[in-house]
Amino acid sequence: MATVSVASSVESRPQPSAPLVPKVKASGLSFYYGAFRALKELDLVVHENCVTALIGPSGCGKSTFLRCFNRMHDLYPGNRYEGEIRLYPDDINLLAPGVDPIEVRMRLSMVFQKPNPFPKSIFENVAYGLRVRGERSGRTLEGKVEAALRDAALWSEVKDRLHQLAFNLSGGQQQRLCIARALATDPELMLFDEPTSSLDPIATASIEELIADLKKKVTILIVTHNMQQAARVSDFTAYMYLGQLIEFGRTDELFIKPKNKQTEDYITGRFG
């Protein structure tokens, strides 16, 4: 049953027409939580202005993988990376010891599983990334906040209450606010960590629509436990299992004719 609906949502989609340009490339990436090796020699290319989805059963390491890109693991002691993640066009290794994780986080941005707005006003939430970058001019801030909220399809709902607390928004609106916050600083790559897993179906649909729109502007890497979602929003999909990347390919190919038996078992619902 699952295959039919996944396949049908893939088939009708037009292929991306522009030539593929790599934006980030992970090669030989392993990651350790202390002595535990959570990721094993992963290789993955994320193409510019495409949505790439990471799927797999819970505990397979997809969130761990995602959090390597913006060095979130550096926040906690005992974590270690091996291999590299190169960011293009400047071709630097994001994981190199000489690269400051703060610089990496300024260039990439992240949307989390649970909406996590700051207990501040809607405006201040979106403006925070800009303030961290030293933006002081009120007019510039206002302009960029409005643009980010428009891009996150939230402007019309909040334009009259920008200075009210973000907590007064609904769950779906909060998540779009978090997307606006992540967009405001013009990131080169946006990381989404199961952004709809705590939302209802209507809010989920609006976030998915948003992601499909956003790829015109920004490259997106999204973790999802929901295969239909991967099929609906992504151009490329990677299937992970037990810290390994089992199969990577165009979403339509991966869902309709997976090359790997394990991938097939997972997407047909026989496993997972």
């Binding site: 913006n70 979130m72 926040l75 703060i102 610089e103 986080r105 300024m106 941005s109 992240m110 989390f112 996590n116 707005p117 700051f118 925070y128 990334g129 961290v132 970058r133 978090c178 916050r181 992540a182 600083t185």
Partner: peptide
């Protein structure tokens, strides 16, 4: 994490 992820 939200704050750190913005580069703070």
């Amino acid at each position: 994490e939200a704050a750190y992820a913005l580069g703070a």
